[in-house]
């Protein structure tokens, strides 16, 4: 395996880890409030969140490129005022990964929160749990399988990203070249042995992730956790 490939693997793992952690921090409270919400804008928000599932990655990448272009508009303002350049940078591919993997984190969590017994909050409050303790001692442990599914799916999905990253990040080795782009490079340059290695690595990884999700759900449903089929549900 070449140094460029190793760089791509490390960069991909960094990107996937950072994206997953940030998505969890954002999605857990948002999914919780949306699951309990009866607002009329709820279907609209759900549509926005689900959109990256069906939107071609290149379309999303294109809009990002237009929106954050450093020559005008928001991109120009970000560069001049905050000194941030999102196009062809790690920050850019991190942001697009966040958006692209959003439904894979958000929907399992929202679904799990919606499946919790309606009286669970009242039951916890009646036993003396404060609202904060209700959340971290009762609600979060009850949706542990959904948290696991959201984590693994968003991590795995970020690792497999291609189109959107190519559009916003280009294909700069050591900076924006992730595993899927490195594989694309090897195929283009007819380096079939290196391509085979990377493809097999990604195949095994994806299989392990999906299998772990399924196994965890089976175990969890037997142990009284709130579960739904997060993999098939997507």
């Amino acid at each position: 395996m070449s140094e460029t490939d190793l760089q791509a693997i490390i960069l991909t793992l960094q990107l996937a880890s950072l994206t997953t952690v940030c998505l969890l921090l954002v999605c857990v409270p948002c999914a919780y409030f949306l699951a309990r919400s009866r607002s009329v804008v709820k279907p609209f928000i759900e549509t926005i969140v689900t959109l990256p599932l069906v939107l071609p990655p290149t379309v999303m990448g294109y809009y990002f490129l237009v929106l954050f272009s450093p020559n005008d508009g928001l991109g120009l303002w970000l560069r001049n005022v905050l000194g941030i350049e999102l196009v062809f940078s790690f920050s850019g591919i991190w942001l697009v990964s966040m958006i692209y993997s959003l439904p894979f984190t958000f929907r399992p969590l929202q679904s799990a929160f919606e499946q919790l017994p309606k009286d669970l909050h009242h039951a916890a409050a009646l036993l003396g749990f404060s609202p904060m303790k209700q959340f971290h001692l009762v609600i979060l442990p009850a949706i542990k399988p959904a948290l696991f599914a959201a984590t693994t799916l968003s991590f795995a999905h970020t690792i497999g990203e291609f189109g959107a990253i190519l559009m916003i990040g280009g294909n700069i080795p050591g900076e924006t070249q992730v595993l899927s782009l490195a594989l694309f490079d090897h195929v283009e340059s007819f380096n079939s042995q290196a391509a085979e290695q990377l493809a097999l690595l990604m195949l095994i990884f994806s299989f392990v992730v999906v299998f772990a999700c399924q196994w965890w759900q089976t175990q969890s449903s037997q142990n009284g956790y709130v579960v739904n089929n997060h993999v098939e549900g997507l």
């Binding site: 039951a123 036993l127 442990p141 009284g224 956790y225």
Partner: peptide, 17 residues
Amino acid sequence: YKRNIAYVTQTPVLFGH
């Protein structure tokens, strides 16, 4: 949660996990 009252509901919700 602050009330000096304990309540056993008709269908108690226990934390299944």
